[in-house]
């Protein structure tokens, strides 16, 4: 089967836009998993609830979708803080945290079905043409909503990376991730830092939820569709690395989309998990080579 350059370009570009959305979701999972040691699957549910809240505020109160962030971001920040506080109070180990957040992930689907509806809910009829009418850039079609996804992804990932790299708070987070005992011994206050990380991750779910509501019809089972790509993007991008999570999500979606041009799309998850398998299988080899190189450098330094 031959595929035109235009079709391939359009498909890859769509992969970039959808990848940006998944990158924003993966950002939250990656930060909590990497820096707090909590593989928080309920983050996906929080994203979905963010989408439903956006839907409700737009359809019931006729708010602008962007204005809804004024409510959802602070509320979800508090939810993130509360969840981390709860895990701290019960002294949850990593595995216990995983079980608790996975339970929340499962329960959330039923709760969302009860509160809203198990049926598809679409925000699209409520949106103005400015957001829904595709623009033509040459022969390429770009939806404004996709641009929103792109901007949100760059803003959130960029600010997270900059905060981690250039602020005192970010250095504290990194120190905590590497060795909490050392970090605390040298003055880092672990609990406030971990609460703020969790709060910011919660707030990011609000922004991701808004983009979800704009981009796709809502249904309670959406997080189950996301979980594979989000987990793989978090792992491939390097846990705790915001830019890595975004790049990995975009790359995965581009590959999946390109795959669907030549092969049955239902096989595309095999591509995602195949890449994860290769990553996990080859990681020890890469680590070995790194260790060899660094020990060689250490020997050179002694000469």
């Amino acid at each position: 089967m031959t595929v035109s350059t235009l079709a391939l370009t359009q498909t890859l570009l769509n992969g970039v836009f959808v990848g940006c959305l998944f990158g924003v979701i993966a950002l939250g999972l990656s930060l909590k998993w990497g820096h707090l040691g909590v593989a928080d699957f309920s983050h996906l549910s929080l994203t979905l609830i963010g989408g439903y809240l956006t839907y409700t505020l737009v359809t019931e109160l006729l708010w602008s979708p962007f204005l809804t962030l004024a409510v959802t971001v602070p509320v979800f920040f508090v939810v993130g803080v509360a969840l981390q506080w709860f895990l701290h109070v019960i002294k949850a180990e990593a595995f216990t945290s995983l079980l608790i957040t996975f339970a929340l992930f499962i329960v959330a689907e039923s709760v969302v079905s009860m509160i809203w509806s198990p049926d598809l809910l679409s925000l699209r009829p409520w949106l103005t043409d400015d957001l829904t009418q595709s623009m033509k850039v040459g022969s390429i079609s770009v939806a404004p909503i996709d641009v929103v996804a792109l901007v949100v992804a760059f803003l959130l990932v960029g600010s997270a990376a900059a905060m981690l790299r250039y602020t005192r708070w970010g250095r504290g987070v990194q120190a905590m991730r590497q060795d909490p005992g050392v970090a605390e011994t040298f003055g880092v206050r672990l609990l406030p830092i971990s609460l703020v990380v969790s709060g910011l991750v919660g707030a990011s779910a609000a922004a991701a939820g808004m983009v979800v509501a704009l981009k796709m019809p809502l249904s309670p089972g959406l997080p189950l569709n996301w979980i594979g790509i989000v987990v793989v993007a978090s792992l491939l991008g390097g846990l705790g690395r915001p830019v890595g999570a975004l790049v990995a999500a975009v790359a995965l979606l581009m590959i999946q989309n390109a795959w669907s041009l030549w092969f049955p799309p239902q096989w595309s998850p095999a591509v995602t998990f195949g890449l994860l398998f290769l990553f996990l299988a080859l990681s020890p080899v890469v680590q070995l080579v790194r260790d060899r190189l660094s020990s060689g450098a250490a020997r050179e330094a002694l000469v």
């Binding site: 005192r168 250095r171 504290g172 120190a175 003055g187 206050r189």
Partner: peptide, 20 residues
Amino acid sequence: RPLGSFTVVENVAMSMMFGR
């Protein structure tokens, strides 16, 4: 137990950033 992703100077600076 140095912090592996920090350089030498960053390891030392961390104590100052979070210290007294």
